[in-house]
Design a protein around this nucleic acid. Structure first.
Lengths: 282, 282
DNA sequence: AACTGAGTTTCAAATAATGAAACCTATTTG
DNA sequence: CAAATAGGTTTCATTATTTGAAACTCAGTT
């Protein structure tokens, strides 16, 4: 059961197939999908056909496998540019990263999980490929806790019920109870820490990005290793982080949408047969 | 009419609504959608509801607007990691970028358009969706022409029929005829140039990334400005580019999928209520 | 108080989705 | 070599969902 708990008819079911396929993290064969799915063979088959047809899935005839398709990348570009905080936050993150020299993350809450929407690496060239789009647990990351701490009670309950409470390290919260206490503290001083709860040796400070109604829009964090830095050193960055978060919130609020194109795909880019809705004159 | 020319039933129609919304490049109101859509009011309304429900769209109650949703970003991460050449090409692109100091692009063909899947800008770090996911015209970009030149005849015809033939600059090809001649040349020496066809002052060299059957999987380019470099200087990079393209093709061919995780979202990241399909033991 | 426009809901008719079962077609097994 | 198996694909009568014209709601006008 994926996100499609609600009854969203055929479309919802098709999208849950998409989610399922994405969740494997590798190309999958039809039979494997079928085994893990509640849908009957023919139904699943048709969905997979349709989605492939639509470019939402990519079929490898050689290996007979399905994987998420490139159309998603195109669509995500639009989503990222419009629905995420990333575009507005960008200059602020750049500055933070330059000043601290550490890794900076920008995250938002999505389905009770942390979704990283942007990142600036520390000077080291290490790291996996691009972080945007990656998801992580909310209950044991600095950014996750920062956002949870400002969630209205009913939503918080819903979110907590969806956490996996997996014990990653010795300090990981493994139940809502212990976490709630910490969330209360976070709420009072507006600062959240990851005390190696997700990965040994990795610590971070995070702050929520709040709108005018104190609703969390996202969170911002600076991450370091226990070798190079300490919680106290990170705590010292608190004021700077809060300032950045506030600036981002302000910008986001007033950012109606730069009619001044540049975020959008100019009409000429749209190939024939597609409906152009954006006009760019240059 | 978007990609859903084929009759893909309800799901196809819903996805075309998604495409439509993404194409505006900014949040849109229901009425605007309705005006540009062939669907009847109630039908469009229900689709938009369903998609919002599913996180494929994001609704802003304050402004009453819809925009592509964050779920797309999550899904795209999987697509990018699995269906694009980007992960395999990464080290090669890094090297190229370091050696040349110029901007390097990695693109693939999607719906007869160029889809950029990765980029190195000598300076900036990678910000995934800001550039990956962007689309451009195939008929007047170096990467686009490199791929078109190696497309089998029937597919080439289909692709050419879908170009917009918009004249961006004085050198832009504005009909299939003149382009075909150039594609022939590109095919013979394996090198494609953008002679300020898309943007004045911007030139580039590109090579196709071909699989064992000479099918274009993608293309690689080095871009510069007429101020800083020349076509001849770029031409000199040809051999190096070809070498990189070949290396990428080879790696892609043999890259079954690193069972050795790291590409995948570990099972623990999946929140309760979602089906975990990936196992990671660490 | 009537009008307008945007958004939302209703409901019978039309259409599309469903899924059990049959059907392919390579590959493996006796 | 024949038979069995497994993965994948198609069929088709039944069933459930989608469809969309029209009616409704509720602001904000005029």
């Amino acid at each position: 059961m994926t996100a499609a708990l609600k009854n969203d008819g055929t479309v919802g079911k098709a999208l849950s197939v998409l989610d399922q396929i994405a969740s494997y993290g590798r190309p999958v064969r039809f039979t494997e999908l079928l085994g893990d799915s509640a849908l009957p063979k023919a139904t699943l088959y048709r969905f997979v056909q349709t989605l492939t047809n639509q470019g939402m899935l990519q079929y490898d005839p050689e290996r007979q496998t399905y994987a998420p398709g490139l159309r998603l990348v195109r669509l995500a570009h639009a989503a990222w540019a419009q629905s995420s905080l990333a575009p507005v936050a960008r200059p602020h993150i750049d500055a933070l990263s330059a000043e601290t020299g550490e890794t900076v993350h920008l995250a938002q809450l999505d389905h009770a999980q942390v979704l990283y929407v942007d990142k600036r690496n520390a000077r080291d060239p290490v790291e996996m490929f691009s972080q945007a789009g990656k998801v992580g647990p909310a209950y044991c990351t600095g950014v996750g806790k920062a956002m949870l701490a400002y969630l209205p009670e009913p939503e918080l309950n819903a979110a907590l019920a969806q956490q996996s409470w997996h014990r990653f390290t010795a300090t990981t919260h493994v139940s809502p109870d212990s976490l709630r206490t910490e969330l209360h503290d976070i709420h009072s001083d507006g600062l959240s820490f990851d005390r190696e709860e997700h990965e040994a040796g990795i610590i971070c400070v995070a702050v929520p990005i709040l709108n005018a109604h104190q609703r969390p829009l996202g969170a911002l964090s600076v991450t370091g290793t226990t070798r190079r830095t300490s919680l106290d050193a990170l705590r010292a960055l608190g004021p700077r982080l809060k300032q950045a978060a506030h600036a981002i919130a302000t910008d986001a609020e007033s950012w109606l949408f730069p009619q001044t194109n540049s975020a959008a795909t100019p009409a000429q880019y749209i190939s024939k047969g597609e409906t152009p809705h954006v006009r760019s004159d240059a």
